[in-house]
Each structure stands twice: as structure tokens, then as C-alpha cells.
């Protein structure tokens, strides 16, 4: 089992704490979404995991070992950190060939990942002619080169077209399905919601949440019911009698907070109220995230800095 273990990890740049006493685990077989606003410390944590930056204190290990002690690390861990990393004057294929050579990976892996990431037709073109989306695919190709058990992707959907975003989603789901450990950072909620099983949320370098995505949403977002009727005043009276908090929207439907469809359905039917529409509104990751960030001093205490 190859999990990522971050323990009491702290990184200071001068007086600024980019990562502040962070402790969490990333387990295999599921996609862990790594969330937080820009500057929350996601990329720094990934660099610390790869031994690229030295922690001020604490440890980060992969499969129980610090990354720099791994022999031929690309066979164990694949990472996409920055799509601009490949030299513009080199071809995509040569970029991957050099990486493969450094870890004694067979040359056929280069052709395989080029095929897998849809870059085979542009592999012999220089990277400077690539679009941002193609560079992103090249970075993902590099991450997959060694067929690693652990995959770290920092903002993989950046610059991808809609088709590419769906491709990344299916890719990370497949990697997790194969039992690999997958950590994917993002600041886009809807995107993360589409592939994550588990969430690790950072705010200003500190751990805010480490739990399954479904639990996170359920704990943060109260159930709501969407209802529409022909008789608005009757519905309003009915809901008010029960002490239910509801609001009417411009287009004529109501949102009942802290309620379930079963209750509202029975209530309306008991009162003989004709319903045109009755549905439960699923909480979204975005709602849960903003509920979390609204309560966290990390975001509210110093809004100037948080926005930066």
C-alpha cells in the first residue's frame, strides 16, 4: 500500500508561513481533491512532498519514505507541477525521452504516454508551438511515464478545453480505480466535485478539512426543497404555520430551507394544496466550501490578504 503521509509539515519563506503544521494522509484507491484558494499552500505542499523544497519542520513521505530517497522515483511517483516546465525549443517527445532515460524507463513508454494523452500527432513538434492545453497534456504524460502507484497533479485542468477536462476527470477516476493513490489540486469546485472521493482543504497553509467529499457536503449544506404551486399565499401560510423558513423566487418557485421532500409533500397533500413541482436540492461542493470558508478566520479575518 502506497499512501502519502504528511506530518506536522511547516514551510516558512522568510516570515510568511506558506504551510502551517499540516497533517493528513492520502490513501490509495480513491481520488483525493486538494482544495483551497490560490496561495493556500497546495503547490508548496506538493513541492515539499517531492523534496523540491525543504520543509522548515515536519515530514512528508510517500510509501513511508522521503521522496529524495526513492531509487528511480518516476517508477513510484508521477507529478505534474507546472505546464511550462518543458523547454520550448525541445520537442514533446524529446522532453519525455530525457525523462525516461533518467529513470531507465523503456523508450516504448514514451510512445505509450504520448498516445494515451493524445499528443502522438504533435510529438515531434517543438513545445513552444503547443497550446496551454497541449502543454498540460505533456505534463500529464510525463507524470504517467513511469506507470507510478502515486500520482500528484497540480491544477491538471488548467487551459484544457471542455473535452480535455472530461478526459482528465476520466483519467483520474481510472487511476484511482486501478488502486493508485491520486492527489489532484484545484481551486475549481465544480471540477473537483466531478472526480473527488475525498477532500483535503487548505486555507492559508492550515488544514481546514480532511474527510470524504459526500460527508463534507452533507455536514455543511442543509437539505432544501424546491417547490412550486398554483396557490402561493396558501403555501406561504402553511409553511409559516410549521415554522419553516422559505423564500419565493422571481420565477415563482419556492425554496424551503432545512426541509425534506417527504415532509413538504405530505404537508401539501394534507392541506389539499396543488403542487406543480417538488424536488430536493442537492448540496453542492461549492456551497459547502463557501460555508466552510465563511466560518474560518483564515478567510474572514484578513480579507485583503486572502484576496491577494
Amino acid at each position: 500500500m502506497t499512501s502519502i503521509d504528511v506530518r506536522n509539515l511547516t514551510k516558512e519563506y522568510g516570515t510568511r508561513r506558506a504551510v502551517d503544521d499540516l497533517t493528513f494522509r492520502v490513501l490509495p484507491g480513491r481520488v483525493t481533491g486538494f482544495l483551497g484558494p490560490n496561495g493556500a499552500g497546495k503547490s508548496t505542499t506538493m513541492r515539499l512532498l517531492l523534496g523540491l523544497d525543504r520543509p522548515t519542520s515536519g515530514t512528508a513521505t510517500i510509501g513511508g519514505r522521503p521522496y529524495p530517497t526513492l531509487d528511480e522515483p518516476l517508477r513510484h511517483v508521477g507529478a505534474l507541477l507546472d505546464a511550462q516546465a518543458a523547454h520550448g525549443s525541445r520537442t514533446g517527445r524529446d522532453h519525455l525521452r530525457a525523462l525516461a532515460a533518467s529513470n531507465r524507463l523503456p523508450a516504448r513508454r514514451v510512445e505509450e504516454v504520448l498516445e494515451e494523452t493524445g499528443l502522438a500527432s504533435v510529438a515531434r513538434r517543438r513545445v513552444k508551438t503547443y497550446s496551454l492545453g497541449m502543454r498540460q497534456r505533456l505534463g500529464i504524460a510525463a507524470a504517467l511515464l513511469g506507470d507510478p502507484e502515486v500520482v500528484l497533479l497540480d491544477e491538471p485542468s488548467n487551459g484544457l478545453d471542455p473535452e480535455g477536462i472530461v478526459w482528465v476527470r476520466e483519467l483520474v477516476r481510472r487511476l484511482a480505480g486501478e488502486g493508485r493513490t491520486v492527489l489532484v489540486s484545484s481551486h475549481l469546485m465544480n471540477e473537483t466535485a466531478s472526480f473527488a472521493d475525498h477532500l483535503v482543504v487548505l486555507g492559508r497553509g492550515r488544514l481546514l478539512t480532511d474527510m470524504p467529499m459526500r460527508d463534507f457536503i452533507d455536514a455543511r449544506v442543509q437539505p432544501r426543497v424546491r417547490v412550486r404551486t398554483t396557490d402561493d399565499p396558501a403555501l406561504e401560510t402553511l409553511l409559516a404555520q410549521r415554522g419553516l423558513d422559505a423564500e419565493r423566487h422571481q420565477d415563482g418557485h419556492w425554496t424551503v430551507h432545512h426541509a425534506r421532500v417527504d415532509d413538504i409533500g405530505r404537508l401539501a397533500s394534507g392541506a389539499g394544496l396543488p403542487l406543480l413541482e417538488l424536488a430536493s436540492e442537492e448540496g453542492t461542493l461549492e456551497q459547502a466550501y463557501f460555508d466552510l470558508t465563511a466560518t474560518e478566520t483564515e478567510f474572514t479575518a484578513r480579507p485583503q490578504e486572502a484576496r491577494r
Binding site: L50, A79, L99
Partner: peptide, 18 residues
Amino acid sequence: ASEFHGGALRVTLAATPR
């Protein structure tokens, strides 16, 4: 210097951490 452009060194050192 080609290693010090746009994070190239990170890719290099992730592959060759020694």
C-alpha cells in the same frame, strides 16, 4: 540556464532527486 526556466528544474530534480 535552460533548467532555470519555468520550473524545468523541478521536473529534472523530481526525476533525479540526488
